[in-house]
């Protein structure tokens, strides 16, 4: 090894200093973001509780039926009823709200980034290695700076989940835009379209199926983060699993696990692109 030849580069130390610098100087700013995020998730939870479990189940069974037909609708109905029956409803709503918040923010941030990457080669070559890094880094690592910046609780959970879940949305939006046949882009330009007209009238509509696939992947990744997020104090089904592992409670672990799987399958099916099937 070259321990002897080269002094250790203080990479970790630098990151430390950087985070410290940010915490010291922007604490107020991040504090506000944290309370904003937590507040938003809480708002969703309250809303879901307000419509009552029956209302929620009817709503999502209807959405499932509209998107995918009676098979998925039946699954949604039975799955959600099971979660309620097992007594995990409140925690499930917290997990659900955390996932929805993270995914919505992933889209809000990821879609524009993906579009820019799809149009601009320089930006794409900058963002690609960053995405590679984000996706290969073990997901637990995101928790550490998240705690420093946002404290514990829901907010760092959401932030870590966004960082983990955002890459597919960016990647597939970029891919979708680049996959639009060159002659269609040319046709659009040849009639004198502005960049925005070209984007909204041709490129985005034609890349929709690919973008939807990216969002679907982001949703799945967000769900896979709920257990990890519970390590920094994010409440919900992840916290149940966490508790089950640390206290060796197979029953709770299994039940909470099943609840997560049910939500995962439901969201996956509902968000899957159906249009490609019709054609």
């Amino acid at each position: 090894m070259n321990d002897h030849l080269l002094p250790k580069i203080p990479l970790g130390h630098w990151i430390d200093l950087f985070i410290q610098f940010i915490t010291n100087n922007f604490e107020g700013f991040f504090g506000q973001i944290a309370s904003g995020l937590a507040g938003f998730v809480e708002l969703l939870v309250t809303a879901f509780e307000f419509i009552t479990p029956i209302g929620f189940i009817i709503l999502f069974t209807a959405i499932a039926f509209w998107r995918r037909g009676w098979g998925v609708a039946l699954f949604t109905l039975l799955g959600l009823a099971l979660i309620y029956d097992l007594g995990y409803w409140h925690n499930a709503m917290q997990t659900f709200s955390l996932v929805v918040t993270s995914v919505v923010l992933s889209i809000v941030i990821g879609l524009p980034l993906g579009i820019i990457a799809g149009i601009n080669n320089t930006f794409k070559s900058i963002i690609t290695p960053i995405l590679d890094l984000l996706q290969t880094m073990p997901s637990f690592v995101y928790l550490i700076p998240a705690i420093f910046l946002f404290g514990t609780g829901m907010a760092p959970g959401v932030v870590a989940t966004i960082i983990f879940a955002i890459p597919p949305t960016i990647r597939l939006t970029n891919l979708g835009i680049r996959q639009v046949p060159e002659d269609l882009v040319e046709a659009s330009e040849s009639f004198g379209s502005t960049t925005m007209q070209k984007l909204f009238k041709v490129q985005l509509p034609l890349s929709m199926p690919t973008i939807m696939a990216g969002i679907n992947q982001s949703i799945m990744l967000a769900l896979s983060m709920v257990v990890v997020a519970s390590l920094v104090g994010a409440p919900g089904l992840g916290a149940d699993v966490n508790f089950a592992v640390t206290s060796l409670r197979t029953d709770i672990g299994f039940e909470a696990g099943i609840a997560i799987v049910i939500i995962a399958i439901m969201l996956d099916r509902i968000s899957q692109n159906t249009r490609s099937k019709k054609q």
Binding site: D183, L184, A187
Partner: peptide, 10 residues
């Protein structure tokens, strides 16, 4: 205005 080889219809 332009007409394309492979039609290039949207």
């Amino acid at each position: 205005s332009m007409v394309f080889q492979r039609f290039a219809l949207f």
